Simulated assay, not measured.
Amino acid sequence: MLGNKIKTLRKALGMTQSELAGNRLTKGMLSQIENSKATPSMSTLEYLAQQLGCEPSDLLNEKEDYLPLLNEIKNDKKQENYSAIYDKLSHVVSENMPQGVMEAKLYSLYAEAGLYLDKPNMKKYIELAASYFKMNSLFLDSAETLWIYHQYRLSHGNWDESLSILNEIRKFYSGNGLEENTVFQLKLLLDEGIVLLALEEYKTSHTRMQEAIALSKETNVYYRMDDIYRIASNYPLVMKDDKEFLRLISKSRQYAIFSENKIALMMFPLLYAVYHNEITKDYKKAIHYLEEFAINPEKIDELYYLEYGKALYGLGEIDRAWKICLNVIYPVRWCIQSM
């Protein structure tokens, strides 16, 4: 057993649990791992191997030594050189590899690089990686592998499939270590909120964001809280609840300032323009915020043109509004309905 092997090697080296745990793990968590009551994630396993002066494959009884290759790929990933990762692993990965942890890692990296490059047939390697991790009781690594595929489908606008993957992760992995990783739970809740928003399920999206906010407060983990509060603000906007919208947007802005998220901070003028178009009907203020937003021309998109057209229409400038809306890629009827 993995836990017993870690304990045996630690004792052979004359190390205490506190020494092995270092500043990365608690002594209690290490004790659970050694007694097979908890399973370490791949990153924790790598840390323990480093502390013990061995390789993760030594702890896992892996026959094939892929570590030199994985170390190369780690550097490629830091540089976001996905072409290099894909090319290196294309000569190594096959569909019938031994069901070990290292093979699962190779499948996961290969699929991630392939998805980034839009290569075909990557889903099967995601499924193999997730399955191999699961067989080795690395449930969090398995969930994170499925999350990679969800991100790919999300980026391509496949909302229903993306939501299905998120539900699969939450349903199966709850009770299998997912609760121990607050950041990953917040990732899932945030992404589910985004997908539900795209599907126009505003109330359910808002509920997920409230769950994320409650979890953050309970655990004192503040992962992407600016985005979470911003997504949460959409439901009160739809419901014309101006006080709640402004409260949530204010919280979002505070977290964006705190985390120095410059990209998020650039978006707030656009959000205030939407607020004035939809709730206060102060179209001059909406245009003021839109002009402030346009200081960063690289951020101008269809929503900017749509909101500008709505503001001009509200001011009675029909011809200008129509010309602005011609920049919107959405169907023209969308512009007309929005006005």
Rank of each mutant, 00 (worst) to 15 (best):
S131L: 07
E46N: 14
T44I: 15
K251A: 09
A311V: 09
L115V: 11
E260C: 02
S259R: 09
I169T: 05
D319Y: 09
A311F: 03
L20Q: 00
I287K: 04
E292A: 08
K74P: 02
D227P: 01
L20H: 00
L30G: 00
Q50I: 06
G53M: 07
L326W: 00
Y272H: 12
Y305I: 04
R208D: 07
K63Q: 13
K123F: 12
K203W: 06
E180A: 15
M339F: 14
L237Q: 07
Q79M: 13
L237W: 01
L190W: 13
V238I: 13
M209H: 02
L138H: 11
R10T: 00
G14H: 06
Q185D: 06
L20C: 02
K310S: 06
A49T: 04
D319E: 15
N35K: 09
E55S: 10
K123M: 10
A12R: 12
D141I: 09
L270G: 03
L196S: 01
G114A: 11
E34N: 05
V328T: 11
M239R: 12
S18N: 09
I73N: 07
S338F: 10
L138E: 01
V332E: 10
N176T: 13
E112G: 00
H206M: 10
L67N: 12
Q210I: 07
I126Q: 01
A113P: 08
G53Y: 07
L315I: 08
G53W: 07
L196A: 04
K88S: 14
Y308W: 13
A21W: 00
Y152R: 06
L69T: 14
E72A: 10
E46C: 12
P120K: 13
L166I: 15
S216H: 04
Y125C: 06
M102L: 14
Q254V: 06
I228E: 08
D160I: 15
K88T: 10
P40E: 02
I148R: 04
E260P: 00
T39F: 11
N167Y: 12
S43M: 08
F133N: 01
E192A: 07
V101A: 01
G53F: 07
A264H: 07
T219D: 08
L20M: 09
K284E: 15
M239I: 05
G177W: 03
S131H: 10
L52W: 05
M29N: 05
Q79S: 15
D227T: 06
L128W: 01
A130K: 04
G3H: 03
A311P: 07
K7F: 11
D76A: 15
T204K: 12
S31V: 05
W322V: 12
Y272I: 06
K171A: 14
F184M: 11
N181D: 15
L315C: 05
Q337D: 12
P236V: 06
S108G: 05
E95W: 03
E292W: 00
I213Q: 10
L67R: 14
Y86C: 04
S216R: 00
M209L: 13
Q17I: 04
Y66G: 06
L70M: 15
E95D: 15
K203T: 13
Y107H: 09
L271Y: 03
K262S: 12
K323Q: 12
T280F: 06
I300V: 15
G309D: 04
L60K: 02
Y275I: 01
T204N: 09
E260S: 08
T44G: 05
Y275A: 03
A129C: 10
